[in-house]
């Protein structure tokens, strides 16, 4: 097994900063904005971006996390109560501009599941997608609106995103 760091701590921070600025650029000051992180690492990234927005705009943006393990199309038994959303969260997404946040965009199946889940519980005004890494190999017609870093990869390679909260460091590595 070989591994190679493709984003170090500093570049990871910069990527999140740039995504934050671009979210502001396309959302006119964060009105009606809700950040939804896809568990596990997407949730931490959502909080990072949320903190950044709060630093800049002095507003607190709702941040939610969803767990889509049960919504993947490769899982048959869908259970909408198992999304990790409470009823207040469900109400909150209606008519909001949602930014869905994940660490890696690969086949697109996770995102599709997240979209299904969100639409299943409410009716957002819009949904856009932010990912830290886009590694290609899409299997669905999904593309990210905000990309931290495009990292073209081979199918056999793995992308591992580390976040300080649970992994003790911020980095992205390619693992062979």
């Amino acid at each position: 097994m070989s591994k190679k760091e493709v984003l170090d701590n500093a570049s990871l921070q910069r990527a999140l900063t740039r995504i934050t600025y671009e979210i502001i650029e396309r959302n006119k000051g964060g009105q009606d904005l809700v950040l939804v992180g896809i568990k596990t690492r997407g949730e931490y990234l959502a909080h990072r971006i949320g903190n950044r927005l709060a630093q800049l705009e002095d507003i607190s943006i709702p941040i939610m996390a969803i767990d889509v393990t049960n919504f993947r199309d490769d899982v048959t038994n869908h259970d909408s109560d198992n999304l990790g959303l409470n009823s207040e969260d469900k109400m909150n997404i209606t008519d909001k501009n949602i930014v869905l946040i994940d660490d890696v965009l690969f086949t697109g199946r996770t995102i599709r599941a997240a979209l299904d889940a969100l639409i299943h519980v409410g009716r957002p005004k819009s949904i856009s997608l932010a990912v830290l890494v886009d590694r290609g190999h899409r299997e669905l017609p999904i593309r990210a609106d905000f990309v931290g870093k495009n990292i073209p990869t081979a199918q056999a390679e793995h992308i591992k995103v580390f976040v300080k909260e649970i992994d003790g460091k911020d980095a992205v590595e390619i693992i062979n």
Binding site: Q13, T17, T20, Y21, R52, Q55, L56
Partner: peptide, 15 residues
């Protein structure tokens, strides 16, 4: 102000 001693904060990251 002419120098290189002042800390400049990037507000978004507090760096």
């Amino acid at each position: 102000h002419h120098g290189m001693n002042h800390p400049i904060e990037e507000i978004v990251s507090r760096q």
